[in-house]
């Protein structure tokens, strides 16, 4: 073994440049491929929402507004996704004729169960997000041209699905369990650390502003 190694060392200089570089190059290219293309695919799992909720129908045909479902409670908390009980106010029995609605009514309303909604922007437990603080009343003081819809998707907060007919796919990081579109801290800081914002709330980039 020792001799073989010595031999290789001696003849090393005579190896063709290509031969010397080939394995290295192969490794390089392969790792680049894995790193840029394969691993992001492997890292995330794609899932569908349990219910094929149609925002558009609710807005256009039922004439509902966003705050009919997504509203503030008196204690300052935010309702987020309506509960089955709230949905059942209209959907105790199927309203329309779609099979999907019937399925929803049978599967959830009748059994009194909550669908296992996948929240695109679900933040982990250590994050406290105040919807009340991020209202048009606050942000709109300066951003006078913003609509509520724009506000909700600023900095990538929420995917703009207010007019969608079917919920987009949800992809989840297999290691962290986070949604692929979960905002990372830097995205929050896009606004929070902005020097222009300091005048309005000097401490709005403090740790405890968002962490619990």
């Amino acid at each position: 073994m020792e001799e073989k190694r010595a031999h290789n060392a001696d003849t090393g200089g005579q190896c063709s440049v290509l031969g010397g570089f080939l394995p290295f190059g192969l490794g390089l290219v392969l790792s680049l491929l894995v790193g840029w293309w394969l691993s992001p695919k492997l890292l995330f799992s794609e899932q569908s929402q349990p219910v094929a909720f149609n925002h558009k129908i609710h807005k256009e045909e039922a004439g509902m507004t966003c705050s009919d479902c997504h509203y503030f409670r008196e204690d300052g908390s935010y309702s987020g996704i309506p509960t089955t009980k709230e949905c059942a106010d209209c959907h105790e029995f199927p309203v329309g004729s779609s099979a999907k609605e019937r399925e929803y009514v049978n599967k959830y309303v009748k059994k009194g169960q909550e669908p296992d909604w996948k929240v695109y922007q679900m933040q982990p437990d250590n994050v406290f997000f105040s919807h009340a603080a991020h209202s048009l009343e606050n942000c709109g003081k300066c951003h006078t041209d913003w609509t509520e819809k724009e506000l909700c998707s600023t900095s990538g907060c929420h995917p703009d699905i207010g007019d969608s007919e079917a919920p987009p796919k949800y992809s989840e990081n297999r290691i962290t369990g986070y949604s692929a579109s979960t905002m990372k801290m830097w995205a929050c800081e896009y606004c929070h650390a902005m020097p222009d914002h300091r005048a309005y709330n000097a401490n709005n980039n403090a740790c405890f502003t968002c962490h619990k």
Partner: peptide, 11 residues
């Protein structure tokens, strides 16, 4: 080569 390459990927 693989090690060097992977350093240049986000993985």
């Amino acid at each position: 080569g693989g090690a060097v390459g992977s350093m240049f990927t986000p993985t």
